[in-house]
């Protein structure tokens, strides 16, 4: 309401600066997100093999998607991964963050924790691929040295997905912990002191104070990690390529397979649009459910 009273010139200049600051990401958004998204959406109504002109097929690709058992399987496999990845990773990260907050504020430890996250995904996947190799992997050498049967890990239908989830938990838990740790710093110490005076124990303080006050940070962490988790691709591309059989053929790998192995761009973009709708829905529900925009500190 006060902006009315300000001199027009100042307001104009302010707006100008604002646009100048926003411009780089706005341009990036338009070129790298908005335009490709619209093109992708249009593409999903065609059959296109990249080399010959696209053929308009109406909603045929969407009709096909609803009857596609492989797509449903890909969704199931992806969901299985998310359900393994997110709870373990978040719990682990929360634990690490609380421990750090309690026992050590060392920057070195924080540095070590984010180290796996700083490594390129491809490198992480390759290292683990070798460590977990069924025949000559380091881990299997240890397992055999202890007198157990060696494990196929990424080579078996049952173990492949949990193994990939474990690799990515290893990579992301430290980084997630740092985010939560930062959130812990925003909780005023007086609240804990007051609780202590009232005779609350550690457990009560954790569930009564820490968790509720961390909510905005936790929601941010959950929203971003769940979206990231649904987009699992690079680890799979390096280690299992969707296999064995279809045990790790997640939605992103399925899209890749249609786009760049089978060269069916139309159907590949149709799956992408479906995934987009699913992610938007999940995020919307999360934001509503967790009331992300308000904090209990207010």
């Amino acid at each position: 309401m006060t902006t009315h009273r300000q001199p027009r010139l100042a307001a104009r200049r302010e707006a100008l600066y604002a646009w100048a600051f926003v411009a780089p990401s706005l341009i990036g958004f338009l070129i790298f997100f908005a335009v490709p998204s619209v093109r992708g959406l249009l593409m999903s109504f065609t059959n296109w093999d990249l080399l010959r002109p696209a053929k308009f097929v109406g909603v045929a690709n969407y009709v096909r998607l609803f009857g596609d058992a492989d797509f449903r399987h890909a969704l199931k496999v992806t969901g299985y991964y998310v359900l393994m990845n997110i709870p373990i990773q978040t719990t682990l990260a929360l634990g690490i963050a609380v421990m750090m907050d309690k026992f050590s504020k060392s920057t070195i430890i924080r540095g070590i924790l984010v180290l796996p996250w700083l490594l390129p995904n491809i490198v992480v996947a390759l290292i683990w691929l070798w460590l977990l190799d069924p025949t000559m992997g380091f881990l299997n050498q240890i397992i055999m040295g202890l007198g157990f049967q060696r494990q196929p890990f990424l080579g078996s239908i049952d173990q492949a997905m949990p193994t990939i989830a474990a690799i990515n938990i290893w990579r992301h838990a430290g980084y997630t912990a740092i985010l939560i740790y930062a959130g812990l710093q925003t909780i005023p110490k007086e609240v804990y002191e007051a609780a202590a005076i009232d005779g609350a124990n550690e457990q009560q303080m954790f569930f009564g104070i820490t968790i509720p006050l961390l909510r905005p940070v936790l929601v941010f962490v959950l929203v971003t990690t769940i979206i990231g988790s649904f987009q699992i691709f690079d680890t799979i591309a390096i280690t299992t390529k969707g296999g064995p059989v279809d045990a790790t053929r997640v939605v992103y790998w399925y899209i890749y397979e249609y786009a760049f192995v089978r060269f069916k761009m139309g159907y590949a973009t149709t799956i992408s649009v479906a995934l987009f709708v699913i992610l938007i829905t999940i995020t919307f529900i999360q934001m509503r459910y967790f009331n992300a925009n308000s904090s209990d500190l207010d």
Binding site: T135, P152, G155
Partner: peptide, 9 residues
Amino acid sequence: PALADIKSL
């Protein structure tokens, strides 16, 4: 050997 071994190496 099992398929997993063959695929790995």
